[in-house]
Design a protein around this nucleic acid. Structure first.
Lengths: 190, 190
DNA sequence: TCTGTTATTTGATTTAGGTCAAATGAAAAT
DNA sequence: ATTTTCATTTGACCTAAATCAAATAACAGA
């Protein structure tokens, strides 16, 4: 998915605006399992996943990883709170596959937000989309059985469910990997 | 909490802008337990809670209510997804106390968003704040015990925890009211 | 290809919190 | 004040999913 297409799917940028905006993004080839942000750091860049995949996660007191979100291709990825508020991140951000990313720094994005009313609009719409998705996951997690949560995951991330380690998905869904393994086993018998 | 103060705490609006923006809001006195939005309707207005309190909730298949969010004074309240996308709402929105609200229609807000770059900025910042809070609740719900979730609630909504029916809080926290009642009982013995 | 390492599956057991049901308490309504 | 209605508490029991532990299976490096 191209960044240009993603941007214009939300807002009708003029040609010149779009060129200027794109000029602030830099392409990055990132290998699998690279950390883009660590806990305690400030997330300095907002990433667009052109190709590949990433996730954000945090560590529980007992040291276990909990996946907070998956980012497939064609979406913006970051430790959102840390990036937008330039506060220290509670999360780690990493790639799960060799990926092609386009990223913009906080300062440059801010420059664009001040310069272009349209960019402000784009970012608002992006934030609202993210809000909607997080709220949707919250509802899935809050009152559904492990089985139903897995079905939600398949619906929300159809292409991811079989590309990443089981443990990552299990913690994303708020269950143990043993439970998820058993759910998948039952799926076989359908 | 005054709407003016809330708006200017996010963005430095000019005096004229602010006056114009405020002129699109209408004051509404709403009695306790009034429905502002029903499931299946499109949420037409965005509300600012000047005084009072509200909540959003949905009905499970078995007819049980699940509180999605509480809105205390000094916050914006709506069925966010429905309002911003003008789609049919999955949630009910209601007051829990006699309240004083200031509301703006979708069309008027949109007018303001197009007219003022600053208003677009304000709404982006508002959306990001909401996103952060929802993500925070998600983490609380996903991997904490019933006990810890209640503690989260007390921290996030200190003034609400003892003003609304126990059942509303229990469903907000993803537990039964029996469980919450037992947790509170244990709190007595500290 | 072999070998050490990591991921997944399977089984046995435990437990937090749910369900069901009844008792008590608090508010509204007449 | 007294009845009716609604909210909260308490108790007994049950179940989904966690934990603990061990056996396979899949992978990556030499």
């Amino acid at each position: 998915m191209y960044l240009t297409d993603f941007l214009t799917s939300y807002v009708a940028f003029s040609h010149d605006e779009l060129q200027d905006i794109l000029s602030y993004f830099t392409k990055e080839d990132v290998k699998k399992n690279q950390l883009l942000v660590k806990k305690g750091q400030v997330c300095r860049r907002l990433y667009f996943v052109h190709k590949g995949m990433g996730r954000s996660y945090y560590l529980k007191e007992d040291g276990k990883e909990v996946t907070q979100w998956f980012f497939g291709d064609g979406v913006f990825m970051s430790s959102a709170d840390s990036f937008f508020n330039q506060s220290t991140s509670y999360y780690y951000l990493e790639t799960l596959e060799d990926s092609v990313l386009y990223s913009v720094s906080y300062d440059d994005l801010n420059h664009l937000l001040v310069k272009y009313h349209t960019m402000e609009r784009f970012t608002r719409l992006l934030a609202i989309t993210m809000l909607t998705k997080v709220a949707q996951k919250l509802n899935a997690i809050q009152f559904q059985t492990a089985r139903e949560r897995y079905d939600y995951m398949i619906a929300e991330f159809p292409n991811i469910a079989h590309r990443v380690p089981l443990g990552h998905i299990a913690s994303y869904l708020g269950m143990t990997q043993e439970t998820l393994s058993r759910i998948r086993k039952n799926d076989m018998n359908l």
